[in-house]
C-alpha cells in the first residue's frame, strides 16, 4: 500500500511541475493566443460535449479520430504481421523484402501526404463502399482513404520489424526440441514459432498503434477532413484558439497512453512468461 502510494507520488512529480511552470508562464505571457491558463483549457474539458468551433463535441472528435487510426492500423497490421512472420521464418522471403522495406522505412508518414492525396484523392470509405448519399455517407465520408493509408504506413514498419525479430530470435533449442519430439514443419510454425514470438508480436502491435496514433495530426491535415482531434488542433490554430490546441494535444496524449496501457495489460496477463524466463 505504502509502496503503491510512493510510486504514485514519484510519477506525479514531473506532471505537477509542468502544470506549475505552465500556469506561471501563462500569467507572465498575459496572452491566451500564446499560452492560455490551465483554467481555460480545463473549461474545455468540463464542457466537453459543447460544439467547438463548428466541429462538434470533444468525444465525437476523439471517436472520429479513433475510427480513422484503427482502420489504418488494422490495414497496416493485416499486411505487416503475416509478412513479418514469413520474413522471420524464411531467409529467402526476408531477402526479397528487406531492402525494399528498408528504402521506405525512413520516409516519415507525413511525407506520403502529397502522393497519398494524388493517388487516392478525396475518396473515402463511403465512396469505396458505394454508399448512397445521406447521413451515413457524410459520416463515413470522414474516413478518407489517403488518411487511412498514411496511418497504415506509420503502423506498418514497426510491426514488420518487431514480428520478424521475434520469429528470428526463437531459441534454436526450442525448435530442435520440437523436431526430436516429432513436430512437422507445420507444427514448428504454428505451435512453436508463433507462440514463442507472441510477446514480440504484441510489442510490435503496441509500437505500431502508438505510431499510427501519432500520425493522426498529419493525416487529419489532409483536405476533406471535417472532424477529428488532429483536425481540431489544426483548425483551432488557424483561429488562434490555443486553449483548444492544447485541449486536443491532451486528448491525443491521453488516448494514446490509454491504448498503450491496454497492450501492457494484455502483455502482462498472457505473456508474463517472457520476462520471467531466463
Amino acid at each position: 500500500m505504502q509502496k503503491t502510494f510512493n510510486k504514485l507520488i514519484l510519477s506525479l512529480i514531473l506532471p505537477a511541475l509542468l502544470l506549475i511552470v505552465w500556469q506561471l508562464s501563462a500569467w507572465q505571457a498575459q496572452n491566451a493566443a500564446v499560452l492560455p491558463t490551465i483554467g481555460r483549457v480545463l473549461e474545455n474539458f468540463i464542457h466537453a460535449t459543447d460544439n467547438f468551433i463548428g466541429l462538434g463535441s470533444i468525444p465525437r472528435n476523439i471517436g472520429v479520430s479513433l475510427i480513422r487510426v484503427l482502420s489504418g492500423y488494422t490495414a497496416g497490421v493485416l499486411i505487416a504481421v503475416p509478412l513479418g512472420v514469413l520474413m522471420g521464418y524464411s531467409k529467402t522471403i526476408q531477402q526479397i523484402f528487406e531492402t525494399f522495406i528498408n528504402i521506405f522505412k525512413p520516409i516519415p508518414p507525413l511525407a506520403w501526404q502529397p502522393l497519398a492525396l494524388a493517388i487516392f484523392g478525396v475518396s473515402s470509405i463511403a465512396s469505396l463502399l458505394n454508399m448512397p448519399f445521406g447521413q451515413q455517407y457524410v459520416f463515413w465520408g470522414n474516413f478518407k482513404i489517403a488518411m487511412v493509408f498514411m496511418i497504415g504506413m506509420g503502423s506498418f514498419f514497426p510491426v514488420v520489424a518487431n514480428v520478424m525479430f521475434g520469429v528470428q530470435n526463437v531459441r534454436q533449442t526450442l525448435i530442435d526440441s520440437a523436431r526430436v519430439l516429432g513436430a512437422s514443419e507445420r507444427d514448428i510454425f504454428f505451435k512453436i514459432l508463433i507462440p514463442a514470438a507472441a510477446p514480440s508480436i504484441i510489442n510490435g502491435l503496441r509500437v505500431g498503434l502508438a505510431i499510427g496514433w501519432a500520425c493522426l495530426v498529419g493525416a487529419e491535415m489532409l483536405p476533406g477532413s471535417l472532424a477529428g482531434v488532429g483536425y481540431l488542433i489544426t483548425h483551432a490554430y488557424e483561429l488562434a484558439r490555443t486553449d483548444l490546441v492544447i485541449t486536443g494535444m491532451i486528448c491525443i496524449g491521453g488516448v494514446g497512453a490509454l491504448l498503450d496501457s491496454v497492450f501492457r495489460i494484455i502483455a502482462n496477463k498472457y505473456f508474463s512468461w517472457e520476462s520471467k524466463t531466463r
Binding site: D176, G182, A183, K191, A196
Partner: peptide, 28 residues
C-alpha cells in the same frame, strides 16, 4: 519420435505449463 533427445538446458516451451510440455510430443 522413435529417437528422443534431452538437451543440456532451457529446452522447455516457456509458454506451456509442465503438463502441456510433457504432452507436447503426443500433441504432435
Amino acid at each position: 519420435r522413435e529417437i528422443g533427445m534431452v538437451f543440456q538446458s532451457y529446452s522447455l516451451m516457456p509458454w506451456l505449463n509442465v503438463l502441456d510440455n510433457i504432452a507436447l510430443g503426443l500433441e504432435f
